[in-house]
Structures are given as C-alpha cells and as structure tokens.
Simulated assay, not measured.
Amino acid sequence: MAETIKGRGSRQYLAGRFERTVSEAVDDGWMAPEGDPVSAPDPLRPRTQVREETARSIISSNDSPDVGFSRSVNPYRGCEHGCSYCFARPSHAYLGLSPGLDFETRIFAKTNAPELLRREFARRSYRPEPIALGINTDAYQPAERRLGLTRQLIEVMLECRHPFSLITKNALVERDLDLLQPLAAQQLVRVHFSVTSLDPHLSARLEPRAAAPHARLRAMHRLHAAGIPVGVMFAPAIPWVNDHELEAVLEAARQAGADSAGYVLLRLPHEVAPLFRDWLQAHMPQRAERVMSVLRQMRGGRDYQAQFGQRMRGQGRFADLLGQRFTLAHRRLGYADVRPHRLDCSRFIAPRMPSAQGELF
C-alpha cells in the first residue's frame, strides 16, 4: 500500500475517468542507484509545477439553484492546498491529468485573467452581477504569493466598482487589505473563510498546505477590524471526522467577527470518492468503514448524489440532525440577528479600453 506523502492530501496518481489506458509503475530492480543524477524523481516528494496558460474566457456562469452566485472567476486550475476531499479534483481529468497528485502538484495559472476580466467589463452588453472569486480552486493558494493574479483581478474590480465575494483557506488574503477596504466601504465585497476544523493536527491531514485554523481566524478578525464583512463556511462536514466541531467553529468565527455562516456536507463526485476512501484508510483506518457507511446513509445508499437540493445537505436522520444543530447554533450565536451586507451593483463603471484612434477628450 502507498505511503502517505508529507504535505500532500493524496498519495496516488489515480487515473481520470476519461483515460483509455492506465499505466502502473513497477520496480523491476533496474532503477538507477540512489544518488545517481539520472535517477527518477522521488515519488514520495513530488514537486509542484506551475504552468502559465492563456485562457480564452474568464467568467463562468451557472444556473444552479443551490449555490449563492451565478458568475465566478478562477485564476488557477488545480490547487496546491491539497484538500483530500476537494470537489474540484475531477476537473483535472479534462486535462488528461490525475485528480489525485496531479491536481495538487500541476497547477495552471491563467496569466491573462485580469486582461480578460477588464475586456468583459468593457463590453457594451455587459450587465454587472456579483462575481464569486476562487470558487473551484482557492484564489489565494501558494502560487498566488509569487504571481499575484488574484490581486490584479481585485484591482480590476476596484477600478470598475464591480461587486464580488471570495472564499479562501489562506491567510494571504490579508496582503490585499489595501484593496479590500475601499471596496468594502462601497459595499462591493464580502470575504468568506472556509474552516473545516479547529484542530491543527486534523487540519494538516485534511488540507495539508492551507493556512492553519488559528491563522484563518486571525485573518478573519483583522479583516473584520478593517471594516470588511466576513463570513465562515464549515465545509465539508464529515461524519465521525469533524462534524462534532460544527458549533465550535461557528462560535470561534463569530468571535472573530463573522456575520454569516453556512455549512456543506462532504461531496464525493467521480474520482473524489476513491481518493477520499484512500485518505481514510491512510489516516483513520479504524473508523473508515463507519464514516463511509454514514455517508452512504445520507446519500441514498451511494457515495454521492448530485441532485440539486441534496448534494449540499444529504438526506435521512443524520443529515436532519446536522441541519438542526446548525440552525440552533446559528440562532444561539446571533448570526440570525445580523443581516449581511448586500453587494451593490449600481456603482459599476465600465472601463475604457485602449482605442486605435486615441482619446479625443
């Protein structure tokens, strides 16, 4: 059985569902000796590769009735945070790459994303609606520290007075306080933090390269103190792994300044199911079967149900109990008494793109 890999959520290159052939590495004794410069890379220390790509479009649209946005922007494909449960892992299969280790080690950066966004805003037919930034993969993952694509996108939002929200697991969002403050003053931004656990040891196994829980709460407090509305998402809720922390996470976030809260049940679409089962066997073998059994009870006897209305919450007694616990904690902590700031679309100013005829005025 494969060993766990430090700093990685997956421990295998699981083939994507579109692959026609699957290769499997076998040591036949003819590998180059240790220390030889022609030796193959250490499979237990896969390095992150960030490849720059030119995107053809940048705003994605959806009509899903169970998400709170219709438009989103993702500057990166793949995510180095390496969350073992990430619902976006299957998207790497479209690239002919593994939703396992490739998803967290082979990152694609859309370097022309700010230019594309400005061009979209400049179209005469464009009508502003709040944009969700960094939904499929975290916009503040480690590559952002060097590339700054998310910061450039926020600069375009500020320039055009365009409303947006973002969700992250990285305290790096504090870097952009100078941009977020004037946006918040005009009701143009909300920042949500995803907090899966307050236990740093569990968090390090579930999401190995994301910021530690205390760092996220500290960042939340600093943004709140700067006048930026913040919220918390307890996601994913995993039975017998972290579900017992739901109330504690909501309370810690409330103390840090969160005025809104939500939760999402663990989702296991496509390749995520075998990858998460493998994670359970590696980190919690004694309770692996119990976890999957309860999940299947909440998913109609299957690993996952993709139907709207059920995919985020599940069904059955355990799902109902989880929902009741959230409702009670939400009310007790005062979230229900706070009306979150609405994002203002009326301030939008379309950018002026460079013209071959120059500026007349």
Rank of each mutant, 00 (worst) to 15 (best):
A319F: 01
A319P: 01
D320M: 10
D320N: 13
D320K: 12
L321A: 15
L321K: 05
L322W: 04
L322R: 03
L322Q: 13
G323T: 11
G323I: 13
R325C: 09
F326L: 08
F326C: 05
T327S: 15
T327F: 03
L328M: 07
L328R: 07
L328Q: 14
L328S: 12
A329L: 02
A329Y: 01
A329K: 02
A329V: 04
H330C: 12
H330R: 12
H330L: 03
R332K: 12
G334N: 02
G334R: 00
G334A: 08
Y335D: 08
Y335G: 06
Y335Q: 05
A336T: 06
A336M: 01
V338L: 12
V338A: 10
R339M: 08
R339D: 12
P340W: 09
P340A: 14
P340K: 09
P340Q: 15
H341L: 14
H341G: 13
R342G: 02
D344P: 01
D344K: 00
D344T: 07
C345G: 01
C345M: 03
C345Y: 00
C345P: 01
C345D: 07
S346H: 02
S346A: 05
R347M: 04
R347Y: 03
F348I: 11
F348Y: 11
I349W: 01
I349H: 12
I349S: 15
A350S: 07
A350K: 02
A350M: 02
P351W: 03
R352Y: 05
M353C: 09
M353Q: 14
P354C: 01
P354V: 03
S355V: 05
S355C: 09
S355E: 11
S355G: 07
S355P: 00
S355R: 07
S355I: 01
S355T: 11
A356W: 03
A356N: 09
A356C: 10
A356T: 13
G358D: 12
G358H: 11
G358V: 05
G358T: 08
G358C: 08
E359P: 00
E359L: 11
E359S: 14
